[in-house]
Design a protein around this nucleic acid. Sequence first.
RNA 1: GCCCCGGUAGUGUAGUGGCCUAUCAUGUGAGCCUGUCGAGCUUUCGACUCGGGUUCAAAUCCCGGCCGGGGCGCCA
Length: 601
Amino acid sequence: MKRTHTCGELGSDYLGKDVCLQGWVRFSRDHGGILFFDLADAHGITQIVYDPEDVDVGSDRSTLEATLDEFSRESVVSVCGSVRKRVPGTEDGRNPTGEVEVLVQSAEVLSRSKAPPFEIGEQKEHLLPAEDTRLRYRYLDLRRAEMIRTLRFRHRLISLARQFAESKGFLEVETPLLTRSTPEGARDFLVPSRVHPGSFYALPQSPQLFKQMLMVASVDRYFQLARCFRDEDSRADRQPEFTQLDMEMSFVDQEDILETVEGMMSHIWKGLFDEELQTPFPRLRYQEAMARYGTDSPDLRFGLPMVEVTEIVREAPYDIFQRVLSKKGSAICGLNVTASMGAGDLGRNEVDRLITWVKKHGMGGMTWMRMTTEGLESNIVKYFTSEVQEGLVAAMDAAPGDLLLFLAGPKARVLEAGGLLREKLAEDLGLIEEGMHQFLWIVDCPMFEKDPVSGKLTAFHHPFVRPVGDLDDCSIGESYDLCLNGVELGSGSLRNHDVDLQRRILSMLGLSDERMEADFGFFLEALGYGAPPHGGIALGVDRMVSMMLGKESIREVIAFPKNKRMHSPFDGSPTMVDDEKLNELQIISLAMDDIDLDDLE
RNA sequence: GCCCCGGUAGUGUAGUGGCCUAUCAUGUGAGCCUGUCGAGCUUUCGACUCGGGUUCAAAUCCCGGCCGGGGCGCCA
């Protein structure tokens, strides 16, 4: 018998119908005579009942009972019978199919299951098995409704993105996975070439150069759900292979690209949450983000910006500030925890705890004052003239009941610690509204970063970003990062379509002409054959999905992720391979036990 | 490469030097039970990550390895 319905679709409309369901035996309840089974598939759970007094199976009764006796947990079974209303008072309101049950008339075991290593019901998060157990038996873990829901959510996000791209005339183009290894960037995953012994392909860290060449090729709107590979250590939000929603457009300016991305996000939000996103998203210049929030991806679901007050307090005879300010590059920044945020709940003990906390984050301590109707109060306000106090109150917009916190030290350290303190306060005071999503563009990022030790310039984003204005006195690129709730979802930029400008940038990054030719010759050559002005962006799909679903790690939204050590508990990869395979590739592994390095000379 | 946290039946846990022949729950096998729904009841099975050390005595303390997680570095 073929199945006629899924386990999620039967309801009162189907009363009296003969149906056949197939799925997994989730739970069974044997009352001695009457038997209940929860039959589950990816669509839901339907109660199957065997009632010896009600069922009309004639002489097949003992056969049917023998079959039902084989219905062990997670076995795959087929049952046919009629849909009937449950006995009044026994309906299950939590289950969409809870009004009805299927009175079984015939049954078959399609596939037996061993006792599963963990339970597959909808347990609470803290009752889940350890993650490596879940990953080893991922096919069982994925049977859980929560995981099916996640897979479906991700699928819908991707199809909405495709739908939107299609409607805007984007062409989905696949770019190679076997590509050229280039310098800079992350460590490559290398793939040895059998035909060219000693040569290697690299798996793409992103399709950056290919999509730019598609622009040269006149494909003026490209997108791809691109698998990317980076051989760097994992984090909760980083996997060695991940998926980017990659886009590139020609004949556009920055505004066009941001608008397109905002449109796509709105389409996705509408489709998944039935929620209108407010566009355009707020924008913040990189420098301003660093100055006010101490990070390049601030969480704007709450306020609490930092205010630099260095100049206001410079002359105040407060010993701690004076000591800090005597050193060059120092700064004093304040945070105003307002009364409405709950400053009143931060008593002396809580403030002391915060001081201990900031000390762990590189600060010598923290100065604080309270604003009252009488003005500022603290055991140290006596060191500040009324003029300075007024300056602080004005700069920090302090009102009675507010608590002012000050960090002093080397500017970069103050901003970093202040940014972390800001996030800690938001969490402690519950400033983040549940379910809120706050997008933000960070624009005008620097072109270059200087290594503090070697003094060497490196590209802030990548070497293909177009500078704003003239390169020589320009430190800013025409680039943008999309942030959601304080997490970077992706970044993009306008690119250099002028080959000479591109060469100058590569050379500023320390590439000799020879090196440039060797590593990027093919790319520079392409730019020389009529490259249109173009730009684009790449968004992290795994991060987007995990943030939208409030997951702790992107592993939760990837069907078969690697663990922290880049090992796959499911298939056991990576593995050693036979010598035969290595020989064919003319590779000798130094990790092999029987290799004597001296023999290799 | 570094720092932090963890590892006890299949699964989730309790146990911080002797009361451990290791707790509880769930699961597994067996049995009972005619309206349950992560059914209930009885019963069975089943574990201290590995190697050293300290101690009269180690699941418990110390060192190292392995494994897992979080982070720093790294991730243009």
